[in-house]
């Protein structure tokens, strides 16, 4: 049943969020620390385990894949609801501060990626993969 997949996904996310909030309380900040990350690891582990036992059939999988496929449209909706006006009208200092942080961070990506051996680039996407979003 498709809903089993959606429910498993929701359960992983809620569990991850609770872990993230608890971690926030433990270190004394009013923020969720890594909730989404924990939820992702949980989903990977739980789904792999269930699949091995044959308890994660195709319809269940569809429930997860549907939300995964909705990701880009959701991000587009998110972009359309950002406070762009405030970002742009913050003045030169805000713009420079944001850009400086971005530039310094981006410059470090190649440095960090070198730690522990190089990684191979992913194979080129096929035309078909590019078109389906």
């Amino acid at each position: 049943m498709v809903l089993y997949g959606v429910a498993a996904l929701a359960l992983c996310m809620l569990a991850g969020m609770i872990i993230g909030d608890l971690l926030g309380v433990a270190v004394g900040v009013d923020a969720n620390v890594g909730g989404v990350g924990f939820a992702m690891v949980l989903l990977v582990l739980v789904s792999a385990w269930l699949r091995k036992k044959g308890l994660f059939p195709k319809p269940t999988e569809q429930g997860v894949l549907f939300w995964s496929a909705l990701y880009i449209p959701i991000v587009v909706a998110m972009a359309a609801t950002q406070n762009v006006v405030e970002a742009v009208t913050g003045g030169p200092m805000a713009i420079l501060a944001g850009l400086a942080a971005l530039a310094c961070g981006a410059a470090l990506v190649p440095v960090i990626s070198r730690i522990g051996g190089r990684s191979e680039p992913l194979p080129e996407m096929t035309e078909e993969e590019k078109l389906e979003v």
Binding site: M13, G16, V36, A39, L43, V64, L65, F66, S68, Y71
Partner: peptide, 9 residues
């Protein structure tokens, strides 16, 4: 966040 978690599948 729900959709982001789903991409981890």
């Amino acid at each position: 966040d729900f959709a982001i978690v789903a991409t981890a599948y």
